[in-house]
């Protein structure tokens, strides 16, 4: 069974070149549950009039966080890929704030994982965005399974 914790989740993220570029950090990790942050970065601005981060950058954070929660699921054997992801944008993130995302892989079948994600800036009363989606993954091999 794969190790599950903050260090493993950070290792997963650090192997992804795009996440290193964005400085995405794991804040916390538990089985099938991960939270991570995206620091504010002027390169990610989507609306120059307001300085608000582009929705695309938020979707990178949401997808990464969701993927990590699937990776941290005890049934996951390694490889995974996004099948579909729907993001709802509740409000603009405050310019200057980091964005914090929390993902939960709440159900898996043999090869499909279902996830939900929420994201906030410094105001935690209303999420900036939420997402739900499905991933495909390679299940752990029988030999890795703990004896019943």
């Amino acid at each position: 069974m794969p190790q599950i914790g903050k260090a493993e989740a950070q290792k997963f993220v650090d192997r992804l070149p795009h996440c290193r570029e964005l400085n995405i950090r794991v804040e916390d990790a538990a089985p099938a549950q991960v939270s991570m942050s995206l620091p504010y970065d002027a390169r990610l601005i989507g609306d120059p009039d307001t300085g608000v981060i582009h929705g695309g950058a938020v979707s990178v954070l949401m997808d990464t966080c969701a993927g990590a929660s699937v990776r941290m699921h005890p049934e996951n054997g390694g490889a995974l890929a996004t099948l579909d992801l729907r993001i709802d944008y509740m409000r603009a993130a405050k310019p200057g704030d980091s964005i914090l995302a929390e993902a939960k892989c709440f159900h898996v079948t043999r090869t499909v994982a279902f996830i939900r994600v929420r994201a906030w800036d410094s105001d935690t009363s209303v999420p900036v965005a939420t997402a739900s989606g499905a991933f495909t993954f390679t299940p752990i091999s029988k030999s890795e399974r703990p004896p019943a």
Partner: peptide, 14 residues
């Protein structure tokens, strides 16, 4: 290797 799913999504949104 594959392009990050979030990047694909960002590209489509742009």
């Amino acid at each position: 290797p594959a392009i990050h799913g979030g990047v694909t999504s960002a590209f489509l949104e742009v």
